[in-house]
């Protein structure tokens, strides 16, 4: 379980940095995250949010499944 959390934290860190770093550039480049009134930033935020929520939900689901198995024995 700890391995999973570490791995998830690493992925999360890289996703966040890849989203944040281009925003520090001085020159405005034609990258996707800045186009269309920066709507893609919102999309990214919501995707991270929902991904996190779903991972949490799936983990609770698996924990309860394990408890159910243990209870049957």
């Amino acid at each position: 379980m700890r391995k999973f959390i570490v791995r998830f934290a690493f992925c999360f860190f890289f996703v966040i940095t890849s989203l944040v770093l281009p925003a520090q550039q001085e020159v405005e480049m034609a990258d996707t995250m800045r186009s269309n009134g920066k709507i893609y930033v919102v999309v990214a935020v919501l995707l991270v949010l929902f991904t996190g929520l779903f991972i949490y939900l799936i983990r609770i689901d698996r924990k309860i499944s394990r408890l159910e198995k243990e209870n049957k024995q």
């Binding site: 709507i39 919102v42 999309v43 919501l46 995707l47 929902f50 779903f54 799936i58 689901d61 698996r62």
Partner: peptide, 24 residues
């Protein structure tokens, strides 16, 4: 990882609603 079909469907549909809902 075992996840029932309707839970996967839920994730797929909500992802579509999220991305499509923001970008279409």
């Amino acid at each position: 990882m075992k996840l029932s079909w309707w839970k996967l469907l839920c994730i797929v549909l909500l992802s579509y609603a999220l991305i499509g809902g923001l970008l279409m």
